[in-house]
Design a protein around this nucleic acid. Structure first.
Lengths: 206, 206
DNA sequence: CGCGTTTTAGATAGATCAGTACAGAAACCG
DNA sequence: CGGTTTCTGTACTGATCTATCTAAAACGCG
């Protein structure tokens, strides 16, 4: 029983998430993390052990929050499957245009981490894989519902279509980081939905 | 006049491309570049001025080679537009499974660079943007040909569909880095082609 | 065979990196 | 209010980073 912390661990973690999100793992120094969180080095190392450990906690927190948000959108049973998928894409697109630094999207920490370090760090790759599976399961659920309701083509099963949705979202995030504007991303989303419905005309309502 | 170089500049550049491709810009040290190229520090700095300069030259070379390869596939006029697009996807997928380190794809240097540094380096972002425009132009050409031939839906114009193809390819590369197997990537490609044709059934011939 | 020029190798510079040591401040309990 | 424990700011460590400096080596040419 002694002196309590003067900072909130979750707030510090959120600040670290943002720092890693914007600059990536390698380019973010421990000094950057001190500045971002407002903590001293001692507090950071006392609380999070190492830069890598802090990163894995930040990544885990990011994935929890973001994936939970996406899953929540996909579980709005009062909407049709197609509406839910469109809502998912809208959430993704809105995110890309809300979270920008110097006029450019910071993308998605999951995608950024997959690209930057999944290939060299099996433990982080495993964290990413678990999150991916969670998202794919959610995608599959909506797709199956859409197929039962006749909204989504049954030419391909949900196991095949879920990775397609995931790939399109990842591609949209990379495109946003590359400078794509909103109309382009919306068009990509529309086209992807066409592929799912299996009919030749998009159905976005403006 | 004076002492000639004992190394080939392009070979050194290719080695640097691979080093940056595998580890990314930040994580690749100048020592890594010396090891990869077989050159001493003096030779590298004498020839390429700085790490960043070497990176921009490596990236430019990568983009030249890769984009030229993709454009060549898309300009095989003896094949139909859909066949050319399928061939493009096949080239992408084959690449993801040919270029691996420790069982994982190294992805695409263009995508990796967009994610890692486009947001913080306008000059590199500009290089990437120019390469993107070159690829999009090639995509548009094939799409328009496909639309004239009745293979590709005219519900959306080529300006809209080209970024879709780009996004799907980017998403496939990220998926590959995340551990997706070949069947998954082929399925994603098939589904994307369905979206272009605007009909409900894929046409892969095994 | 030197002379001028360029490349090369290796040592070095100075900054920055992740991480630690330590001392004192702050808060709780009795 | 004293003892104890935890926290926190600062100084520091050794490694590594990018980049440069120095001097020897290697070539073409007169």
């Amino acid at each position: 029983m002694a002196r309590p912390r003067t900072f909130d661990e979750e707030r510090a973690l959120d600040a670290a998430v943002w720092a890693f999100w914007v600059k990536g793992y390698e380019a973010t120094s421990t000094q950057d993390l001190c500045s971002a969180t407002g903590l001293g080095r001692s507090s950071i190392y006392n609380t999070f052990s190492s830069k890598r450990e802090l990163f894995t906690r930040a990544l885990a927190r990011y994935m929890d929050v973001m994936t939970a948000g996406q899953v929540a959108v996909l579980e709005q049973v009062e909407r049709s499957a197609m509406e839910r998928l469109r809502a998912l894409f809208d959430v993704v697109i809105d995110g890309e245009f809300e979270r920008r630094v110097e006029g450019r999207s910071v993308g998605c920490l999951t995608v950024n981490t997959t690209v930057e370090i999944a290939g060299r760090d099996p433990e982080i790759a495993e964290l990413l894989a678990r999150d991916l599976e969670r998202r794919l399961a959610s995608f599959r659920g909506v797709i199956e519902a859409g197929q039962r309701a006749g909204e989504i083509s049954t030419a391909r099963d949900a196991d095949s279509l879920a990775p397609f949705i995931n790939a399109v979202i990842g591609g949209m995030r990379v495109s946003a980081q590359g400078g794509a504007d909103r109309a382009v991303l919306e068009s990509v989303a529309d086209t992807a939905l066409v592929a799912l419905s299996g009919v030749g005309s998009p159905s976005r309502v403006d």
